[in-house]
């Protein structure tokens, strides 16, 4: 139980996917212009991460033992088709949720945080429950980073900023400062 809690906290704060591993930067910089959309994208991503973690565990345990060199191709195909499948399922079951997630679901396929999650979980040899908790932590961490940046960006819209720095340059510098703040969490662990 203790172990699972540490896996969660580690993925959420100490090894935050966006701010220390640089994964999923495209949506982080691209879609974080408003608080609401970034929260939604974060939720959708967390959901896909959960499903991916389960699929990756099944693949690793039953299929890829026999052919490790096919790992990458298997993962990417499974992720792409899972996203497609979830999209259709949500469309049928809950049109309201589908509209809320909108364009974000298909975009998630090319989010490297998802593939990164599958690869990291495999490299560290996580079991079934550890994998699920890891996915939850990573998703929550991604959402947290998105929401933080979106809040700061909304605030900066109202301030007086030199035209030169506006846009991606400023977002990157904000992200750098956020990342510095997250480094403070590194002291939570004596071992990683």
């Amino acid at each position: 139980m203790d172990n699972l809690l540490w896996v969660f906290i580690s993925a959420l704060l100490v090894n935050n996917f966006v701010l220390t591993y640089f994964l999923g930067l495209c949506p982080f910089l691209g879609v974080s212009s408003s608080l609401e959309t970034s929260a939604r994208l974060g939720l959708a991503t967390t959901f896909v991460m959960l499903v991916t973690a389960v699929c990756a565990w099944i693949l690793n345990t039953y299929v890829l033992i026999h052919a490790p060199y096919l790992r990458l191709i298997c993962f990417i195909v499974v992720i792409a088709s899972t996203v497609q499948f979830i999209e259709m399922l949500i469309k049928k079951l809950s049109p309201a949720l589908f509209r809320a997630m909108g364009i974000f679901l298909p975009l998630i396929t090319t989010n490297c945080a998802i593939l990164g999650l599958a690869i990291f979980a495999t490299n560290r040899g996580y079991g079934f429950w550890e994998g699920i908790v890891y996915a939850l932590g990573a998703g929550a961490g991604f959402t947290l980073a998105m929401v933080l940046l979106a809040g700061l960006r909304e605030e900066s819209e109202l301030s007086n900023i030199p035209a030169l720095i506006k846009g991606t340059a400023m977002n990157l510098i904000i992200a750098g400062i956020l990342s510095m703040a997250f480094m403070g969490f590194a002291g939570l662990f004596s071992t990683t």
Partner: peptide
């Protein structure tokens, strides 16, 4: 700090600033 994660964000931010 420059070889740690924040350095990456800051350096790229400054380079983009230069391009702007």
């Amino acid at each position: 700090i420059m070889i740690l994660p924040p350095g990456g964000f800051l350096t790229l931010g400054v380079i983009l600033l230069f391009f702007n």
